[in-house]
Simulated assay, not measured.
Amino acid sequence: MLAIVRVLAALVLLDIGFAHARDDGRYANSPMKPWFESLHNKDGIQCCAVADGMALSDVDWDTQDGHYRVRLDGQWVVVPDDRVITQPNRIGRPIVWPQYLNGKPIVRCFMPGTMT
């Protein structure tokens, strides 16, 4: 019985990550595609694997108490430090890869902008 519960729990967790993913081929020929696909957060989770990145406007991200935060679905979400991409941002604009847990937005990955 315990094994069945573990399998069901694992399936539920996997479904959370795939619920909002889509790869419609729009960027298949983009020279930036390999770079985007190489991005991982500090936990080693690939940013683009199951979540679409969104470029943010300057008014939709900032810092508070030493942490980044982003506005997703009209609410501010604190970015966990292990979700921040620290390599240089090749496009300059801040990007967030959101996911949803129990209907609430969370951050899979976040790459700050150049702040220029």
Rank of each mutant, 00 (worst) to 15 (best):
M1K: 14
M1N: 13
L2E: 12
A3P: 05
V5R: 15
V5G: 12
V5I: 13
R6H: 13
L8T: 07
L8Q: 12
A9E: 05
A9F: 09
A9C: 10
A9H: 07
A10V: 08
A10S: 12
A10E: 12
L11N: 09
L11Y: 02
L11A: 10
L11W: 06
L11D: 07
V12L: 14
L13E: 07
L14R: 10
L14F: 06
D15L: 13
D15W: 10
I16Y: 05
I16F: 06
G17C: 06
G17L: 03
F18P: 08
A19M: 12
H20T: 10
H20E: 11
H20S: 11
H20P: 04
A21E: 11
A21V: 09
D23C: 11
D23M: 08
D24N: 10
G25H: 04
A28K: 12
N29A: 15
N29V: 12
N29W: 13
P31Q: 08
M32H: 13
K33N: 13
K33W: 11
P34I: 03
P34Y: 02
W35Y: 08
W35V: 06
F36H: 04
F36R: 01
S38G: 03
L39W: 01
K42P: 03
K42N: 11
D43T: 12
D43A: 15
G44K: 02
I45M: 15
Q46V: 10
Q46T: 09
C47Y: 00
V50T: 14
A51G: 07
D52A: 15
D52V: 14
G53F: 01
M54Y: 12
M54I: 15
M54D: 06
M54S: 10
A55F: 12
L56R: 01
D58V: 11
V59F: 14
V59L: 15
D60I: 04
D60S: 08
W61E: 04
D62T: 15
D62I: 14
D62A: 14
T63C: 12
Q64N: 12
Y68D: 00
Y68M: 03
Y68I: 01
Y68P: 00
V70N: 00
R71D: 05
L72W: 05
D73K: 07
D73Y: 05
D73I: 01
G74Y: 02
Q75H: 09
W76G: 03
V77C: 07
V77K: 03
V78Q: 08
V79H: 01
V79Q: 00
P80D: 05
D81A: 10
D82L: 05
R83S: 02
R83L: 02
V84T: 04
V84Q: 00
I85F: 06
T86S: 06
T86A: 04
Q87H: 14
Q87Y: 14
P88W: 10
P88D: 10
N89S: 06
R90F: 13
I91N: 07
G92V: 05
G92R: 07
R93T: 11
R93Q: 13
I95F: 07
I95K: 00
W97R: 03
W97V: 00
P98Y: 01
Y100G: 01
Y100V: 03
L101M: 10
L101P: 01
L101Y: 09
N102K: 12
N102W: 13
G103T: 00
G103P: 01
P105N: 01
P105G: 02
I106M: 09
V107K: 00
C109F: 03
M111E: 04
M111F: 03
P112R: 02
T114G: 15
T114M: 14
M115W: 15
T116D: 15
